Simulated scan of single mutants.
Amino acid sequence: MIIAILVLLFLLTPKEVQAIQTGIVLNEIFAPTVSDWVEIYNKTDSEINVSEWKIEDTATTPIKVFSSGTIIGPRGFLVVEVASRLNNSGDIIRLVTKDGNEIDIFEYTAIVPNKSFARLPDGSDIWTEADPTKNVSNGEGPPKQNLIQKTGFITLSEFMPSPAGGSEWAEVYNPNTFELNISGWKIDDIDGGSSPFTIPTDTKINAKSYKVFSFSSKLNNSGDSIRLLNPSGSLAEKYDFSDTQKGLSFAKDTKGAWQLTTSPTPGSVNKITFAQGALGISLGTDDPTNPRNTLFGVEGENTNKPTLSNQTIRNYIKGPSSNGKVAGIAKLVNENNKLSTLAIAAGVSFILTALVWPILENKLWKK
């Protein structure tokens, strides 16, 4: 009986309203000044406790950790002043619970002077460039021309520096699950080389799709770099390649490694058929089937969404030799085989010596 009463009291005791995943969102972000701020919004009709929640960006230290007892009222706003913490050239803002669960995220590639990024109406899925409305409602709906499609990024997937005929070309890949406007992104060669090719206004690329751009005399056949720059001019990806072969393209395989292939596939999934080796250095991140970690532009995935801060340099020796073995790997295998043979021979000699020497020593001693 006592246990039943205690259980009943526990069930009837008022408890804190816990945040639900869809209840709190990033609602407005203002980044163009030294007085940046982030606004979050409670979409529900109940109070929500956000104690120890965090607002984070790409830095290792959180922008803000909410103190114990922080509550946002029904349909209420909470503004966090962040000084000049947000980057004008692009940043990622995350809302994270005290347990480390990511509740909301917003990414931008460049700021618009005197404008904020805002959800219109409040808490909706539509982001727009708007006049700042700090700590108050953003309004009912944006002008159609100001609508911002979901933010995302693209990656290099394949390029042809030495075509057998026609123009040079480069292919980009949209790893996101939504259509993306890629106007203003740039494809360039080595820093300080030719002028970059700018992707034209209102160019869109479908989700998980490829788009090819042609240009002339940009990539040097004797070796060069190909770079992908975002609309603000920041480096998104870079690949350095050595001598090219006419009619062969460089394409990413399913692990994101650049390979020289004899089967160019502009506008579609890459097909790697090996040619004689090429050496290159790849700077980049991610995998194309994972929107948070995607730079490969091929089917299949690697799940590492490295950000710019943890980019890696990879060296690759590519292509099969004439006997069907992979050039560079076959040589290594042969050398290892030689070492293994020597090691085995040395071991056998040692064992034989250990067995025979006592017999010889005994005979010699008797003499």
Rank of each mutant, 00 (worst) to 15 (best):
I199H: 00
I199M: 02
R85L: 10
K318Y: 11
S349Y: 11
W127P: 06
A118V: 09
L228N: 03
L8Q: 12
T303R: 04
T97A: 01
L9Q: 14
K325Y: 14
I72G: 04
N221G: 14
D188C: 07
A4S: 04
T22V: 06
F197K: 02
N293T: 14
S194N: 07
K271L: 09
L12V: 12
I71R: 06
N293M: 12
E16M: 03
L95K: 03
N230S: 09
P200M: 04
K363M: 05
V96N: 03
T289E: 12
N323Y: 10
K115G: 00
P231K: 04
I359D: 10
F213P: 04
A110W: 11
N87M: 09
N323D: 15
V212I: 04
G152V: 14
M160K: 01
V65I: 13
F77R: 08
E47L: 10
T201Q: 09
N220G: 02
T303D: 01
V38R: 10
Y108D: 11
L364S: 07
T273E: 13
I126S: 08
E158H: 02
S232N: 06
G192F: 08
S234N: 06
F159R: 13
E171I: 05
F215W: 10
F153Y: 15
T262H: 01
D188P: 05
K150Y: 02
G300L: 01
G324C: 13
N88Q: 11
V25Q: 13
R75P: 00
I313H: 14
I48W: 14
A327R: 11
L9T: 12
W185F: 12
I63P: 11
V82C: 13
K15T: 04
S282D: 15
V326F: 05
M1F: 08
A59W: 01
V356E: 00
G256Q: 00
P196W: 06
I5H: 14
L12I: 13
T244P: 05
